[in-house]
């Protein structure tokens, strides 16, 4: 098994990749809020332009962005159908108990756009940021939660260790699977329940080994003086650069624009 792609990071050297991960995290949140604020055709054109601009800046090939839509396709279709059929209003088309209304079409289009823009926008963040950088960003952004005794540093340490061990454990699962197959285990045939049961001889050794690894790692960390986040310095501290402040400014502009679209936009769509 080769290198496992985690998240969906796509390395290019674009300006979006170079931005501070905190900026990208806050930016994504702002973008999502804007998505739910805007109203009217002009608003939608504005958001589309923003998304298209960011996609262009990221230099991530378009098919990659479209691919991120696949997992939500099912939800998307369901949402559209329900909105289409269950919104009351002026009836356009009627058959048996089904009816499609003018308002229904509007709401359905809006929901479809919102959902797909939301997913595309946030995958733009995961495509341009390594999982580790994101973990760092979250540790810093949520640092204020330490006041209410949330172990922010510990949670982020756990996340980054998990990221390191996912490929190792996957490799191990593969090895155990092959070993069990060599002993005659059958993972492929039979009903769903039978196949689930067949996973037990794979999962038990995997869990045992994961616990052993966790124990070893904890000892290795202690041996290297790890004692939580206090009095700890950072090798790669996050520091804002000029472009990051510009990005924050642009975000503020986007948010203001969305609020204006909300107030003045026609509620047509």
């Amino acid at each position: 098994m080769g290198e496992v792609t985690l998240g969906q990071y796509y390395p290019t050297n674009s300006i979006l990749h170079k931005l501070d991960p905190r900026v990208k995290f806050v930016g994504t949140l702002t973008y999502i809020i804007s998505l739910f604020l805007i109203r009217g055709v002009a608003g939608w054109i504005f958001v589309t332009a923003v998304l298209a601009g960011l996609m262009f800046l990221s230099r991530v090939p378009f098919p990659y962005l479209i691919k991120s839509m696949r997992p939500i396709l099912f939800i998307l279709v369901i949402t559209v159908i329900f909105n289409l059929l269950l919104t009351p209003g002026t009836i356009v088309w009627k058959f048996w108990i089904f009816q499609i209304t003018k308002e229904g079409i509007r709401v359905a289009i809006q929901m479809a756009l919102r959902l797909s823009y939301l997913v595309m926008g946030s995958s733009l963040m995961t495509l341009t940021t390594t999982p580790n950088a994101l973990t760092d960003a979250m540790e810093r952004l949520f640092a204020f939660l330490k006041v209410v005794k949330v172990p922010v540093h510990e949670i982020s340490m756990m996340m980054s260790i998990a990221l390191r061990f996912i490929p190792i454990l996957m490799e191990e699962a593969d090895k155990i699977k092959k070993a069990q197959m060599a002993r005659g285990a059958d993972f492929e045939s039979g009903s769903f329940i039978r196949r689930m049961k067949a996973m037990i001889p794979l999962l038990v050794p995997l869990f045992v080994s994961a616990f052993r690894r966790a124990n070893d790692l904890a000892m290795a960390m202690e041996a290297r003086c790890y004692h939580g986040g206090d009095n700890r310095t950072q090798m790669k501290p996050l520091r804002y650069k000029g472009r990051d402040y510009v990005a924050y400014l642009l975000m503020a502009v986007m948010l203001t624009a969305s609020i204006l679209f909300r107030i003045f936009g026609k509620s047509a769509i």
Binding site: N132, S160, I161, L163, R164, R212, R213, D216, L217, A220, M221, R224, C225, Y226, H227, R232, T233, Q234, M235, K236
Partner: peptide, 18 residues
Amino acid sequence: NQIIGTVVEEDVGFGPEN
């Protein structure tokens, strides 16, 4: 089971950070 960082240099930096 004793390498903590996801990149070599980050792992070496882990001890001094602590």
